[in-house]
């Protein structure tokens, strides 16, 4: 099917340990979905596997992007098709200036060298939206960034690269309320018929600002429940134990 990111019965292991045990999930273009679940459920693993992390072994299942099977593609091939992962722990790359890096990445995204004017227009717009200072552009990629700055930098990349499908892995964790609002503003500005996001979070808090169309709950390597925004509120109130019981009982 075109216009959706689809995960079909995905089984994934890492060094012999099975982490994902048959994940099914559909993210249609134009929607924002939240992915919640307790620590260790496999949320980050799912994000990384969708992005193509070679450290994980796909045992079974498929990942379809706009109907195309991308399970065997390299991470950069996936990125060039419009997939983006905002890392839970963004990586430091010393000596590589943010602006320089963004220009290279945008070149790959567009398939050609971006016109300088367009490149700067994108940078400027993104930086303003994030209430940031242009000085960040000459800093080295994530090096010496605070936890919050690293998260903001992931959103900066999202805004400049304008992917079709974005996975945001706990972009809210470690942010104060002001930073959280800024990040949410960035993500919300991307919303539209040509964009979809899977927002991984522990907390309902972020979902007050990025209101999801659909909420999925993951436990022990599976998506165990899917519902509307009210599901997040319920989890906030009652925790995960009742769900565990429900899954066990089913």
């Amino acid at each position: 099917m075109a216009n959706r990111l689809e995960i079909q019965d995905l089984w994934v292991s890492h060094e012999g340990k099975t982490i994902l045990k048959g994940v099914n999930l559909v993210l249609p273009l134009g929607e924002v979905h939240a992915l919640m679940g307790p620590n260790g459920a496999g949320k980050s693993t799912l994000g990384k596997v969708i992005a193509g992390d070679p450290n994980y072994q796909v045992e079974k299942g498929r990942i379809l992007l706009d109907g195309e099977d991308i399970t065997e593609l390299t991470p950069d091939e996936r990125a060039r098709k419009g997939l983006f992962l905002a890392f839970q722990y963004p990586v430091e790359v010393p000596g590589v200036q943010v602006a320089n890096f963004l220009r290279l990445a945008l070149k790959e995204r567009l398939g050609q060298e971006p016109p300088i004017a367009e490149f700067y227009a994108r940078l400027k717009e993104a930086i303003e939206l994030l209430d940031w200072d242009e000085s960040v552009l000459s800093r080295y990629l994530n090096e010496g960034f605070s936890g919050g700055e690293k998260k903001k930098n992931e959103i900066l990349q999202l805004l400049v690269l304008r992917p079709r499908y974005a996975i945001l892995d706990e972009t809210d964790s470690g942010l104060d309320i002001d930073a959280l609002k800024v990040v949410a503003r960035g993500v919300n500005s991307m919303r539209g018929p040509e964009f979809a996001a899977l927002v991984i979070t522990h907390y309902q808090r972020l979902l007050n600002y990025i209101v999801p169309d659909v909420v999925h709950v993951m436990m022990d390597g599976r998506v165990v429940k899917t519902g509307g925004p009210e599901l997040a509120l319920e989890l906030e109130k009652r925790g995960y134990d009742w769900l565990k019981a429900e899954v066990a009982g089913a």
């Binding site: 991470p75 950069d76 996936r78 990586v91 010393p94 000596g95 990445a105 080295y140 990629l141």
Partner: peptide, 28 residues
């Protein structure tokens, strides 16, 4: 580092480009 390579690859850089960029940063 593998994690640096993967990070840059998820932004569309090929493995070689990612490695070259890391080296350039190292020499900066």
């Amino acid at each position: 580092a593998d994690d640096q390579i993967f990070y840059l690859e998820t932004r569309g850089l090929s493995e070689d480009e990612a490695a070259a960029l890391i080296v350039r940063g190292f020499l900066e």
